[in-house]
């Protein structure tokens, strides 16, 4: 028995020691390495963009660059950066989450002015994804509060997309109730009463709706809705464009504190600027993000339907900081709705 034991123990020991030695994550050969901390639905976009950027970077500078990515709910990702995740650039769902990082001194408070278009190289909006043939006849926001309609959206507290969803519904309700906030609150409240599953991120909600078959309508990023159709086939889902939606500007920024410590500022700047180039804009459009560049926008005009869009700077919201405070802070409107 002792003999057997020695063998077993030796084997276990060898396995335990050899594993890290043989497979330890070795520093890869890239000259520069960037970490892009992003939100949920940008996985496919940045997979493609990172590859393209690495090629141009190599061609222009002769240096190899490796771009690592982390994805998750936008608020959660901001939290990780605040807690020390060493992001060189953040590409999040909304400005407030980057503001939160800036508040902790990781980047300058005026970060949004450093790049064109509010530092948002692409935009998106919120649309409805419904089951093929639209069996519940969902056409606009007011169809979402009807009894028996199940609405899928992620949690506005953790998901950026969900905050856009919520605000778009709010904007619609204000418009149709003559600006009456109490009525808007009641409207959004009854909308959320129809939500059976509240995932923490946009991608979780998409999976719940598409793969798990829960709900009649998914409030989705436009790009996420297109992607779902692409992934699961046109015969499964339809996209419904509401009469009014919101202009979602997912911003990008360099995290000053991190790039300065790591000495990666130049590469990080080149990376974000490349998002604004024709090539970058094209990749965004191919991944169903609305490009800012007028020329590329024209080229992809047919892809993106025309929608009446309000912006976050609309007086009804007054910018992200105010909107966040009013609606999503502790005890804010969303909490009041959910406490009921």
């Amino acid at each position: 028995m002792s003999f057997h034991f020695k063998h077993a123990a030796a084997a276990a020991l060898v396995a335990a020691l050899a594993a890290p030695l043989g497979f330890a994550p070795v520093a890869r050969a890239a000259d520069v390495s960037l970490l892009n901390v992003s939100y949920d639905p940008t996985r496919e976009l940045y997979q493609q963009f990172n590859k393209a950027f690495a090629e141009t970077y190599k061609a222009e500078t002769g240096k190899t660059i490796e771009i690592k990515a982390s994805h998750g709910g936008s608020g959660k990702q901001a939290r990780s950066v605040i807690d020390g995740l060493e992001a060189d650039v953040v590409t999040l769902a909304l400005a407030y989450d980057i503001d939160a990082i800036a508040d902790k001194g990781f980047l300058a408070a005026d970060w949004q002015k450093r790049l064109p278009d509010n530092s948002s190289p692409y935009t998106s909006t919120i649309v409805f994804l419904v089951r093929k043939g639209n069996p519940k006849g969902i056409k606009d926001w007011n169809d979402l509060v009807k009894p028996g309609v199940q609405v899928i959206t992620p949690n506005p507290k953790t998901s950026g997309g969900a905050r856009w969803n919520y605000l778009a519904a709010w904007a619609y309700a204000l418009k149709h109730n003559g600006g009456d906030e109490a009525k808007a609150k009641a409207f959004v409240g009854s909308l959320f009463k129809n939500v059976p599953v509240l995932d923490t991120g946009a991608r979780g909600s998409t999976v719940t709706f598409t793969e798990r078959g829960v709900g009649d309508v998914l409030l989705a990023w436009e790009n996420e809705a297109f992607l779902s159709k692409k992934e699961f086939g046109d015969d499964k889902f339809d996209i419904v464009i509401p009469s009014l939606s919101i202009l979602a500007e997912p911003p990008v920024a360099i995290v000053d504190k991190n790039v300065d410590r790591k000495g990666t500022r130049a590469a990080a700047e080149a990376y974000l600027k490349a998002l604004y180039t024709k090539a970058g804009q094209k990749i965004a459009a191919e991944n169903f993000y609305r490009p800012r560049d007028p020329e590329i926008a024209k080229e992809y005009e047919k892809v993106f339907p025309k929608i009446d869009l309000v912006t976050i700077d609309d007086p009804a919201f007054g910018g992200w900081r105010k909107a966040q405070k009013t609606h999503f802070s502790d005890g804010g409107v969303f909490d009041q709705i959910y406490a009921n």
Binding site: A16, L17, A19, P20, F23, A24, P25
Partner: peptide
């Protein structure tokens, strides 16, 4: 897989 093996080897040891 590599990371899991590394972490496991260290913590089990």
């Amino acid at each position: 897989v590599r990371l899991t093996l590394l972490v496991t080897a260290l913590s089990v040891t």
